[in-house]
Amino acid sequence: MKPLWLAQIVWREVLRRKDLYLLAVALGAALLALSSADAFGAAGAGRYILDAGVALAWAASLTLAVTTAGRQLPRDLETGVVFSLLSKPVSRTEVVLGKWLGAWTVSCAATVLFYAVALAAAANRGGFPEPRTLIQALALHAAALAWVCALALAISTRCSLAAALVFSGVALWVSAFMAPAIPELAQGAGRARETALLLVHYAVPHLSLFDLRLRLAHRWGPAPAGAVAAALAYGAGWTALFLLLGAQSYRGRHFRRDAA
């Protein structure tokens, strides 16, 4: 139960800050501008607005997930709340779990809001996704947010707030944009470099495996259930690993007032 009460604090924080609302308004404004510009021609407008809307929903939800999860532990140290928190009968593992649970669930709820904005904008121009694909897309999105939050939290156990956000952002950028391109880069790079690059390719989580945006926008139909299940398990595996590393790192930390 203790992680749940910690998660509740994270929810309260996010709901009382402006980030979530600003992201939702910015998303709506961007889609409104796209809709009114009619940049894609009348026939394909709905599809492309859905595509752009879900892409922006990804960007907004990842921003929210990284900033929410990444600031929890460093902010507790900066403000000194960590001393109040750890003097209670709450274990450090419970603190990490509670913070992750809060950051993940609130990011998931925000994602539903962002999708709703994107779907409303697309529906306005005749772009409707298939319900089954939409459910799969949301489930995979939630699975991605789970490991992204765990990653940001694990990094933040040993960093200041600014460093945690920068490192998490870089890690996410590598996962989203560099990791899928590695096999291509590895070709013809020499045996040793090719092996090293492929090792990196398999050693980092791949965000693209969780993205059903094109399938959703272009109505290609639901992804095979086995593939979705495998991606969910892959996400759960990375989440568990990052949580374990984060908890282990947090348990070994010293907290001194002059370090706060």
Binding site: R12, T79, G80, V81, F83, S84
Partner: peptide
């Protein structure tokens, strides 16, 4: 603790 701390929000 000194100084006392709690979540400001």
């Amino acid at each position: 603790p000194d100084p006392p701390a709690a979540y400001s929000f």
